[in-house]
Amino acid sequence: MEENITLNKRIATGIGRAGDMLIFLFHAFYWFKTAFRMRKETIAQIYRMGVGSLPVVSLMAIFTGMVMGLQAGQELLKFQATQWLGGIVGATLARELGPVLTGLIVAGRVGASMTAELGTMKISEEIDALRAMAINPIRLLVVPRMIASIIVLPLLTIYTNVTGLLGGFIIGKAQLGIKLFPYMEGIAKFVSPKDIANGLIKSTVFGLIMGLVACYEGFTTEGGARGVGESTTRSVVITFLLILIADYVVTHLLY
């Protein structure tokens, strides 16, 4: 019985927070009207998120491409169809792995640090101080971060796709002796513009999710340093789950 009550309470707060997050999203969208005014700060955020993520995204992408090259290559060899390798690696990356892996890894890095930063500002009353100075904290802090997230994820996804293809080719060449031209031809044959576009739509949605969750969790942080730790963890977990759910939903809608 007791457990039921705490469970019900947790479900209720969960639903409550989901509703709050939606309201937060509408506020943020409303303040997107100031996007042009906030361009300097937005560019700074894009630079910080994008350039800062390059090393980890590069590693992730090259190894993902290599693993795919290895696995798909062995199978294709059985059918004497190694010229398809580029197509298979390319299509998998463009449609699915590129956006999802990039989304997850960037959320773990950038989303977490955004929440920690904003959460610290919240508990040290910096956000209250902004409000007291008649400066809207959503405009000043959330608009640049959310817009930057929405722009950065698709860009990094393109980068992941290219780097992953390179990883696939390295393995294909080393293990199966595939040449560059057939590899490229395979890509051209299998990866349609629609695949690329859909992957970018996905990563845009993931960027929105990451920016929203990270900013919302930061802005609702309470309870000192421990609270910052808790909201940072929550931000990453919720972003991961929402990205995986959104991946299914968007795929369903697009194909």
Partner: peptide
């Protein structure tokens, strides 16, 4: 509303107990 309140807040200065400077 928060936006209407800004009109009032522009005419008030606040010194926070924690200083609350932007780090």
């Amino acid at each position: 509303t928060e936006e209407e309140m800004e009109r009032i807040r522009k005419r008030i200065g606040v010194v926070f107990q924690s200083s609350a400077l932007l780090n």
